[in-house]
Nucleic acid binder design. Sequence first.
DNA 1: CGATTATGATTAA
DNA 2: TAATCCTAATCGC
Length: 264
Amino acid sequence: MPEGHTIHRLAKDLNRDLRGAKLAASSPQGRFAEGAALLDGGQLRRAEAHGKHLFLWWRPDALVHIHLGLAGVWRRWPAPPPPPTAAVRLRLSGAAVTWDLSGPNQCAVLPPTAYQEIRARLGPDPLRRDGDPAVFAARVAASAQPIGALLLDQRVAAGVGNVYRAEILFLTGVHPLRAGRALRAEEIDAIWAESARQLRLGVRRNKIVTIDRGELGKPIKEAVRAEATNVYQQERCRRCGAAVASAGLAGRRIWWCPEHQQLP
DNA sequence: CGATTATGATTAA
DNA sequence: TAATCCTAATCGC
C-alpha cells in the first residue's frame, strides 16, 4: 500500500535492475496482454515517479503509466523467478531480476503526450527536484479547506497519503482541521519541509517510520508497523501518551494528538 | 471460508 | 456520500 515514497523507491530500483537491458514482458493475468506484447523484447529507457504515478519510458516508442492505487504492488525476484501467480498483471524479466506487478489501479501504454497531461494534474512533489514549495504554499494559502484535506489532494502536494498526512501534521504541531488560508506562512513552509523529509526517509527505508528514533543512521530494528507512527492508527500519542483523537476527513480517517496539535 | 480492511482515486448520485 | 475498481493480509465464525 503505497504513498509517494514507495513509487520513488520503485523507480530507483527498477532503473537499477532493468534499465538498458532487453526485457521479456508478459501479462499472466491477461488484462495487459496487448500492452505486454508491445513491450516484449524492448528496453526500459528510464523509470520516473511523480507523486504516486510511475512512468516507464520504453524503447522503442512507448510510455507506460502505472498507478498502484490501494492494492497494487511490485514484487522482485532474483533469477530464476517462480511461476507468476494468476494475479500478475505485468511481469518484466531481465537476465538477473524479474519484477511482477499485481493489482494496479492503472497500467496502460499511452502516447508520450499523456506524460505532460498527467503531470499537469498533479501538484509539486516534495521528492522531485522540480517540486516547487512556492506552488504548494500558494495553493494551501488560497484554500478554505482544512489542511488535513489539502494534504491528501494530489493537486496540492503529490505523493502524500493517509499515513503521511497524519504524521506530518503531528510532527509540525498543526491541527488537521485548520483551514489552509488560516495557516501562517512559516507553518506552511514547515509542513512542506517535513513532507520532504519524511518522504525521503521513506524512500531510504522503503517503509513509513515517523517516530523519533527513526532517524537516518539509527535504523529501528524490526520496526513493527503498529509502532512506527506517532498518531496514525494509534490509541495514544507515542510522544506524550494522550488519547489520540480521530475523525473522518476527505473520505479517510485521520488521527491527531490533542496535546501536540491544538486549534488556535 | 467469507467478511473486512488497507499507505488510492474516479465516477455517479 | 456511495459505489466501484483491484489484490492480499487479517479477522471472525
